[in-house]
């Protein structure tokens, strides 16, 4: 441990030059002392808030505004066991076929499209109960599908989750792979979170029909 502050000789280096103390050449901070003091206090409060948030006290939630709270919610990682593997999927109403079929939406969400950091997965994970967001998702998927595949136009979507049971520890199992919806057994629970209204689907299909190929 370094000697206490009162024992340390005060250096007076030139601007930008290291201060020399007992063979130690100390890089000079550029920030004024007052700024560093304020930063130290704010840094201390930040660290305390991170700890408090993870420790589950809830005080940080009550005191901090949302954008600040967001930055302190970072330590409580994976506290709970997953009950099932959740797969988020979409089925689309194909105008020409007049029925729902699975639609692979990964091309429309190219950021980390194959894992649960995909924007589609994240949107479903965060907003599965917010119809307004799911309706926006529906419009986006329809827009992209109809723009990129005019030969397979859609009028709307069904957004759903699959709950795939996790075997007990130590059970041998096959490696994870993404399967088409049709290949999952009926025993796998499906939950439909959003379905485009029938009238909306018909209207979109009629409008697309009017636009031609």
């Amino acid at each position: 441990m370094a000697p206490p502050k009162s024992d340390v000789p005060k250096p007076s280096p030139g601007k930008g030059e290291p201060a020399k103390l007992d063979g130690v050449a100390l890089a000079q901070p550029w920030a004024p002392r007052r700024l560093r003091q304020v930063a130290a206090v704010l840094g201390g409060l930040y660290v305390f808030a991170v700890w408090l948030d993870a420790a589950g006290n809830g005080a940080a939630d009550k005191v901090l505004p949302l954008p600040v709270r967001f930055f302190v919610q970072e330590a409580a990682l994976f506290p709970h066991a997953a009950r099932d593997v959740i797969e988020w999927r979409a089925e689309a109403w194909f105008c020409d076929a007049g029925r729902f079929e699975e639609l692979d939406v990964r091309p429309y969400f190219p950021i980390r499209r194959d894992d649960k950091e995909s924007r589609f997965y994240r949107a479903m994970f965060f907003h599965l109960h917010q119809r307004r967001v799911l309706a926006e998702l529906d419009r986006f998927i329809a827009r992209e599908q109809n723009r990129t595949h005019p030969e397979a136009r859609i009028g709307g979507v069904m957004l759903l989750s699959l709950r795939i049971p996790i075997p007990p520890p130590g059970t041998p199992e096959a490696r994870y792979q993404r399967l088409p919806l049709a290949e999952y057994p009926t025993s796998i629970e499906r939950h439909y979170w959003f379905v485009t209204d029938k009238a909306e689907r018909e209207q979109r299909c009629a409008e697309l029909q009017g636009e031609g190929p």
Binding site: F78, P79, P168
Partner: peptide
């Protein structure tokens, strides 16, 4: 946070090894 969650008695690590 883990202590307050499932880490003492649940199969947390195992349960997160099966998805994408």
């Amino acid at each position: 946070a883990k202590l307050r969650g499932d880490w003492l008695s649940g199969d947390v690590l195992w349960s997160h090894l099966h998805d994408n």
